[in-house]
Nucleic acid binder design. Structure first.
Lengths: 359, 359
DNA sequence: CGCTCCTTCTGTATCGTTCAAGATGGAGGC
DNA sequence: GCCTCCATCTTGAACGATACAGAAGGAGCG
C-alpha cells in the first residue's frame, strides 16, 4: 500500500497527542470533532487548528467503531463474483436501490467478495458492518451460513425464507404464470422455456425430473412451476413445452438454449425466458436462424432491466421492481421499529414488441 | 435495525466468554480462528464447538481492525450521488475494475455516499478502510480534501494531478484530438461540440470565454482543447465550431445540447460528444429533427461504454479502458512496492456506424 | 447570600481483539 | 541425567477512541 503521509516512519498522531499538545483532555478533542455544541467555539477552533497543525487525521474510525459498536455501514453480499455483480444489470439495479437508501441514512455500503467460498467466509467475518443484505439465490451457498454466524441483522432477497430472517422478493410463480398466460392469449400452443439454473453445477441442457427434485435455486423452480400452471390450465399436454436450463445469466447462455429449443422438430412458436438477458440472447439466436421476432417467434423476458426497452423490437417482459426491492431490503435493515417478516413486491407484465399473435 | 440474534437483550459473547467457558486463554481462542496451525487439532475443534454452542459470532471485526490497524477494505469515493454511481455505465465499469482487483486480494469495497458535502466529510472520516480511490472530476470538490485529511494511501482517477497523490487517467487532450481528426478526414468542416460540464453550477448552454477561464473539471477543458487542436490544425476558422456545455452526463442533456446546436443556421454536419451517453442523446435529437445518422450528421462519442456497440447505428467513439483504469488504480493502492506516481492509459478510436463522409 | 442550574471541561473505565514475550511439559540427543 | 528444542498454551499490554459521571465556575433568582 503506497504511503501518502508526510512521514511514513512516524505513526499518525492520535486524539491523545492533540489533547496533550493543547493541554486539554482527550474528551474535549473528541467533542470538538463529534459534538461541537459541547464546547465553546473558541476552544473548538483551537482544537481544530492544533489538529491540522499536527496532521491529525481525525478520530480513528476503527477505534470509534469498537467503542460505539456501530459501523455506519451495511454489507452487501452477492452470490457470484464481484465483477459479475457490477456487470449484471439486475444486480446493478439492486445496488442502486441499496445505495439510494444508504445515502439518505448516511451509511456506506461494504461490498464483499464471495466468489471463493473459503476466503468468502473470512471476508464476511472481517466485515465491519451493522447488518447484511444477502442477494443470493441458493440457500445452500456457504456464504449464507457465514453471514448468519455473524448474528447481525440480515435481510435476504430472492432467497426464499430462512427462519428468523426477514426477506424481500416477488411472487415468482404467479409472475411466471402471467407471462405464459400472455402468450397463450395470443394463440401460442408450442413453447420453449429458457430457465435459469436449478443447481450451481455448470449444467446446461434439458431439465430432467432428477434436477427438478433437487433444487438449489428455489426461484428457478418456482418460475418453471408458474409457467406450467398456465400451460396446464390451458389444457396443454406435456409435450407442448420443453425446458432448457442455462448455466449463468449471460446472453450467450440464452443464445445457446434458444438454439437448442428452436432446432427441435416442431419448434416452439414462443419462448419464455427467465431473465431479460437470456431473452435478448434468444432474440439473437432467432435472428441467426432467420426467424423474425415477433412474426415467427414470440419471446417474453423477465426482470425488465433498462436495456429491455432499448433492444429492437422492445422486449415484452415481466417487470419486477429491482431498485425498489433493494431499497425495501435496505430500509428493513435500517429500521428497528418495523419487524416486517417478509415483503412480497408486485410484478407487472410489460408488453412491447417481441410478442404477437401466432401466425 | 431489526434484531436477528436469539436473545436481543444479552450482548453477544466475546472471545473471553468462549475462553472462560472452555478454561483456556483468549489467545488460544483467537488462534483457533485465525491461526489454526498454532494449536492442536483437538483443541481447535473443541474451541470451535464451544464457540458454536455459545453463539459466538466470530472475532469482532472492529476490535480486530483496531488492533491490527488494517481494515482489509478500500474506499471508493465518487463525486456524485451513490445511486448515480450505479446508474452511469462508465462508473459501473469502473467499479467492475476495482472489484476484480479487490476480489483477488480478498479486500472489500466500501462505497461511501458523498452527495451532501457536509455528511460526506463525516462519512469519509468514519470509513474503516486501508486506502481510497477517488473517482472524481473536480479538484475543488470538498470530498477530495476530506479524503486527503485521512492521510491514508490514495489514488485519484481522472482528477489531474494532486501533489503526492498517484493518479490514473488518459491523455484526454490527445484522445479528443483524434476524434476531431477522424471527422476532418471524412470531410467535415462545421462542427458542434457537446461538452461535459466545466463547473458544477448547473449551467447548460454555450461555453463562454469566462467559463473556460475558471474551470473546476479539468478533463472537460482538456477535451475541448484537444478537439480544437485538430480543428485549428486543419486551418478552420473559429466560426466553424460551436461548443455547448451540458449539465450532467445524462442522455437528456445530450438531447438538449444537440438540439441547440442543430437548430442554428448553417448547422454542423458533425457532432463531437464528450461521452457516449451524450452522444446517444444527440442521436435521439437528430432522429427527432428528421436527420439521419450518419448520412446527414456524423457523431463521435467518448468512453466506449457497453451500450455504444448496441445502439443502431453503432456509435463511433473514443475507447478508454474504463475497467482497466480502475483495476490499475486498485493495484496501485494495494501494492506497496510500486511507487508509481501516475499512469496514463492508452485510448483508441473505434469507428462504427455514426460517422461517414460529408454529403 | 445561598441555592439551583447551566455551560464547559475533565478523568476513568471500557469496547474486544491481537501481539510479543514468556511459561510449561514432554520428546529427543548426547 | 542433563540440556535443548519444539509444540502448545498463557499472560500482560496495547490499539484509539467514546460513555458516563462528575467538577469547576459563572449566571440567575428569590
Amino acid at each position: 500500500m503506497s504511503e501518502t503521509s508526510r512521514n511514513p516512519a512516524k505513526p499518525a498522531p492520535t486524539l491523545n497527542d492533540v489533547a496533550a499538545a493543547l493541554g486539554v483532555s482527550r474528551t474535549t478533542v473528541s467533542n470538538a470533532f463529534n459534538r461541537p455544541d459541547q464546547l465553546s467555539t473558541e476552544l473548538r477552533d483551537k482544537v481544530m487548528e492544533a489538529a491540522k497543525a499536527l496532521g491529525y487525521p481525525g478520530p480513528n474510525p476503527m477505534a470509534r467503531m469498537l467503542r460505539t459498536g456501530r459501523a455506519e455501514a451495511i454489507g452487501f453480499v452477492f452470490e457470484d463474483s464481484l465483477s459479475y455483480a457490477f456487470e449484471d444489470p439486475a444486480s446493478i439495479a439492486f445496488l442502486q436501490g441499496v445505495a439510494k437508501v444508504c445515502e439518505e441514512a448516511g451509511h456506506s455500503i461494504l461490498v464483499t467478495p464471495a466468489s471463493n467460498p473459503d476466503s468468502a467466509r473470512a471476508t464476511i467475518r472481517a466485515a465491519a458492518v451493522d447488518g447484511f443484505i444477502i442477494y443470493c439465490l441458493s440457500r445452500d451457498h456457504p456464504i449464507v451460513d457465514a453471514v448468519l454466524e455473524r448474528r447481525l441483522p440480515v435481510v435476504s432477497v430472492d432467497l426464499g425464507t430462512i427462519p428468523g430472517v426477514p426477506s424481500v422478493g416477488i411472487d415468482d410463480r404467479a409472475a411466471a404464470a402471467v407471462a405464459a398466460r400472455h402468450l397463450l392469449d395470443l394463440g401460442h400452443r408450442r413453447f420453449g422455456i429458457i430457465g435459469l439454473e436449478l443447481r450451481n453445477d455448470g449444467y446446461a441442457g434439458p431439465v430432467t425430473e432428477e434436477r427438478r427434485n433437487d433444487v438449489a435455486f428455489p426461484i428457478s423452480l418456482k418460475r418453471i412451476l408458474g409457467y406450467e400452471d398456465s400451460l396446464k390450465a390451458a389444457g396443454l399436454p406435456a409435450e407442448s413445452w420443453a425446458i432448457e436450463e442455462c448455466c449463468g445469466n449471460q446472453e450467450q447462455s440464452g443464445v445457446d438454449a434458444a438454439l437448442r429449443l428452436l432446432r427441435e422438430p416442431d419448434r416452439p412458436t414462443a419462448l419464455l425466458a427467465m431473465s431479460d438477458r437470456l431473452a435478448i440472447g434468444a432474440m439473437k439466436a432467432a435472428r441467426s436462424l432467420g426467424l423474425s421476432v415477433p412474426e415467427d417467434l414470440s419471446i417474453v423476458g423477465f426482470d425488465d432491466i433498462p436495456i429491455a426497452s432499448r433492444v429492437d423490437p422492445g422486449l415484452t417482459t415481466i417487470r419486477q421492481p429491482l431498485v425498489e426491492k433493494a431499497a425495501a431490503a435496505a430500509r428493513m435493515l435500517l429500521n428497528t421499529e418495523t419487524a416486517a417478516e417478509s415483503l412480497v413486491l408486485p410484478t407487472e407484465l410489460v408488453v412491447r414488441g417481441t410478442t404477437a399473435r401466432t401466425p
